[in-house]
Each structure stands twice: as C-alpha cells, then as structure tokens.
Simulated scan of single mutants.
Amino acid sequence: MNRATAVLTDWNNRVNQSTASKHDQAQVAEITRLRSQLRNNRRERQRLQDEVDAAATVVAALAAENAALREQAAHRAAVVIPLNRAHSTQD
C-alpha cells in the first residue's frame, strides 16, 4: 500500500508535465484571458453606448428647441408693429 501512494504521486507528476497537459494548461490560460478581455470590452461598449445615448438626447433637445425658435421667429415676422408717428417725424 505504501508503494501505491508513491507510484500514484509519480504518475500524477508525469501526467502534469506531459505535452497534452501543458497544452491543456495553455488553453485554459488563453480562455481565461479571452474571458477577461470580453468582460472589459463589454464594459467599454456599454460606456460608449451611454455616451451615444446622452449625445442623442442632447441633439434631440436642441433640435426641438431650434424648431420652436424657428416657429416663433416665423410668427413674429408676420406681426406688423406700427411705428409711432411722432418718433418717425423727429428723425
């Protein structure tokens, strides 16, 4: 029985140092790195989407304000304001 423990330990050491094991370890490390990169990219995409949404909100507000000002200016131009005769004769 004591020999079995030593044999199993030796077996595990050799398996961990095998080419297939090293390949698996490299693959696990690469997958971990890619998952981390994906998380970071998703966070960055969300931050950029928030910026785009904020900019779109500002553009929509400015467009609405611009349309209101144009309409106000159009109605103002149609109003005739009489000149004060006393003021016009002094010039």
Score class of each variant (00 low, 15 high):
9 T>N: 09
11 W>A: 07
45 R>G: 09
70 R>Y: 03
89 T>H: 00
26 A>N: 02
9 T>H: 06
13 N>G: 14
6 A>D: 12
81 I>C: 05
90 Q>P: 06
87 H>I: 15
71 E>I: 05
20 A>C: 01
72 Q>S: 07
10 D>W: 00
89 T>P: 00
38 L>Q: 08
73 A>Y: 07
57 T>M: 11
2 N>H: 04
21 S>H: 05
28 V>C: 01
70 R>D: 09
7 V>F: 07
86 A>D: 00
81 I>V: 10
91 D>I: 12
72 Q>G: 05
23 H>W: 10
16 N>F: 13
71 E>R: 11
27 Q>E: 11
47 R>K: 14
88 S>M: 15
53 D>N: 15
67 A>Q: 05
7 V>I: 11
17 Q>I: 01
21 S>D: 03
8 L>A: 02
30 E>R: 08
4 A>N: 08
86 A>Q: 02
71 E>Y: 09
33 R>K: 09
19 T>I: 06
1 M>C: 04
69 L>Q: 15
25 Q>Y: 08
45 R>F: 14
43 R>K: 11
2 N>W: 01
32 T>G: 04
45 R>C: 14
76 R>I: 03
55 A>G: 09
56 A>L: 06
32 T>I: 08
80 V>G: 03
61 A>G: 11
31 I>D: 01
61 A>Q: 12
85 R>G: 08
84 N>S: 06
36 S>I: 11
78 A>N: 11
4 A>H: 05
65 E>G: 12
82 P>T: 01
13 N>D: 13
14 R>S: 01
55 A>Y: 07
77 A>S: 11
19 T>P: 02
69 L>R: 14
33 R>N: 07
52 V>I: 10
5 T>V: 15
62 L>C: 01
54 A>M: 10
7 V>S: 10
24 D>S: 01
29 A>F: 12
67 A>H: 05
10 D>Q: 00
59 V>G: 07
57 T>C: 10
8 L>P: 02
43 R>W: 06
24 D>V: 01
17 Q>R: 04
80 V>L: 11
77 A>F: 07
77 A>M: 10
19 T>W: 04
38 L>F: 07
88 S>F: 13
61 A>C: 10
88 S>T: 14
37 Q>P: 03
57 T>Q: 11
6 A>T: 10
13 N>F: 13
5 T>Y: 14
83 L>K: 15
30 E>Q: 12
89 T>E: 01
5 T>E: 15
52 V>P: 03
58 V>I: 01
60 A>F: 12
47 R>H: 13
42 R>S: 15
28 V>Y: 02
37 Q>A: 15
85 R>I: 12
15 V>F: 15
42 R>K: 14
30 E>M: 11
46 Q>E: 05
74 A>W: 10
